[in-house]
Write a protein that binds this DNA or RNA. Sequence first.
DNA 1: ATGCCTTTGTGAACGCGTGCACAAAGATGG
DNA 2: CCATCTTTGTGCACGCGTTCACAAAGGCAT
Lengths: 251, 251
Amino acid sequence: MATGRTHRPATRSRGIPEATVARLPLYLRALTALSERSVPTVSSEELATAAGVNSAKLRKDFSYLGSYGTRGVGYDVEYLVYQISRELGLTQDWPVVIVGVGNLGAALANYGGFASRGFRVAALLDQDPALTGRTVAGMPVSHTDDLERIVTENGVSIGVITIPAGGAQQVCDRLVAAGVTSILNFAPTVLSVPEGVDVRKVDLSIELQILAFHEQRKAGEDATAPADLPAGPHTTPRKGPDGDVPAVMPA
Amino acid sequence: MATGRTHRPATRSRGIPEATVARLPLYLRALTALSERSVPTVSSEELATAAGVNSAKLRKDFSYLGSYGTRGVGYDVEYLVYQISRELGLTQDWPVVIVGVGNLGAALANYGGFASRGFRVAALLDQDPALTGRTVAGMPVSHTDDLERIVTENGVSIGVITIPAGGAQQVCDRLVAAGVTSILNFAPTVLSVPEGVDVRKVDLSIELQILAFHEQRKAGEDATAPADLPAGPHTTPRKGPDGDVPAVMPA
DNA sequence: ATGCCTTTGTGAACGCGTGCACAAAGATGG
DNA sequence: CCATCTTTGTGCACGCGTTCACAAAGGCAT
Ligand SMILES: NC(=O)c1ccc[n+]([C@@H]2O[C@H](COP(=O)([O-])OP(=O)(O)OC[C@H]3O[C@@H](n4cnc5c(N)ncnc54)[C@H](O)[C@@H]3O)[C@@H](O)[C@H]2O)c1
Ligand SMILES: NC(=O)c1ccc[n+]([C@@H]2O[C@H](COP(=O)([O-])OP(=O)(O)OC[C@H]3O[C@@H](n4cnc5c(N)ncnc54)[C@H](O)[C@@H]3O)[C@@H](O)[C@H]2O)c1
């Protein structure tokens, strides 16, 4: 998982479990696709397949929102789209700021998938004077000096951090002080925030490392018959757990 | 969480719980920082704080790897770095291919955080003839026609998909057929893969929606005293749960 | 050598999440 | 109006993950 909440042991907000909340966007995506194909109703089985989850799990998830289905028929697609959107707060317009307009920040600014979900990029911020004033994704890049003013004036409550790890905590502090209460962090650092502020992190490097772990395990399992795997690690694999000398030994 | 595994109910691979595996990269990052500052040993309490987790959880996580600590002293930083690296398979070199060299794919290609962890970009692939042959991040962009050859020749077992959702399943199928057994998917689609192939997904839109949910909940809680929040949703907030007419009613 | 102090490693309890399996509900056809 | 069939909503059990709390282990000073 590239993400995880910080603090708070998965509080059950308004009776909806955190795990369910995390799946609602998945259902919404599948439902939106059905809606565009003008499908009127869908069964829990069909929708679950489309969303890649168990149908019992899906029904239980929906039961937290209320009884929106019709037995013997299924769920009304349009109605469910509305209910989930409302539950997720997507009937509102959420202005966000992106701090750090480098490779990743620029890619996010150019991404169309945010606006379609009610997230509007209110401003792009960067420290670099060479970027300030330039236009990225049809939007001027503002200097971080104006961070507090921009956040306040636009009523921004969600901030996206796409700067190197070194400056992330400081930028985070400024965002929080200015009124931001939700942060999406791409910098590989642990951010500490006061109570009441949510932080979610996306760390691509961690995702790859988790894949590598399982990849190594797969390669190790059939170490007796490695020939049936068309692709393997490029360098010489160390099949056995342990068995080679550590680079550094403890004192 | 921006990520989650597909299929398989969290199998305990080689006795190490999935949740622990997901945290090992976090510990490794914190340990690497300590190592660079030449800190010889660290206690579970200190390291846990640096990694943003509970110290008891950290100790239990490490206990799955073995008894690498010294009571009364703590853990040897260098030794632990090595052990975790080995456990994650980072002592190997993992060649990866990135399919889709658009905004996001290019940002990933430019990212230096991969190579530093043993992940080497073996090739960039794109369908667009206008991109083919051009250089991105000092590396030529190959055409997707050569996907199978490149994967086979380089022994690639990890593929990164950064193309629009429409073509993701097809590219996924080709990667798997060519021998890729781990996929990191950025396209907002559910990928179906055969047994033995791991898929992890990163969906930024989902992350924002989860933040929006909690943001709305926070705004709704103190609906009686909204004045003490300096920043709020830009449009008129609908404070109460329900109470307004749905845009669409069920038949 | 001995006692004290720090910190690990883990047993045990608890809570959350998942999935099975089924009764109730409602639609549909005769 | 009744029988049948489909599909929801959920009670229940189970397993994983988290956290507490503490005994054991080892270093260190005297
Ligand atoms: N590019 C990727 O694919 C990728 C992948 C994973 C993680 N990340 C992480 O995302 C972050 C950004 O990556 P990137 O590749 O876009 O880096 P980058 O160097 O291309 O861009 C960083 C930008 O942030 C600006 N910046 C630096 N410090 C700042 C500050 N204090 N205030 C405001 N702006 C500041 C810089 O001027 C620069 O424009 C890094 O933490 C990186 O580790 C990136
Ligand atoms: N840019 C972002 O910040 C961002 C954020 C979240 C999710 N995503 C997702 O990541 C994916 C890529 O986003 P992007 O902004 O880079 O898009 P993009 O349009 O900038 O780039 C897509 C690239 O993929 C190539 N492509 C398309 N179909 C292909 C195929 N079948 N085989 C090989 N190459 C193909 C295109 O030629 C193009 O170069 C999308 O699924 C998008 O939803 C992007």
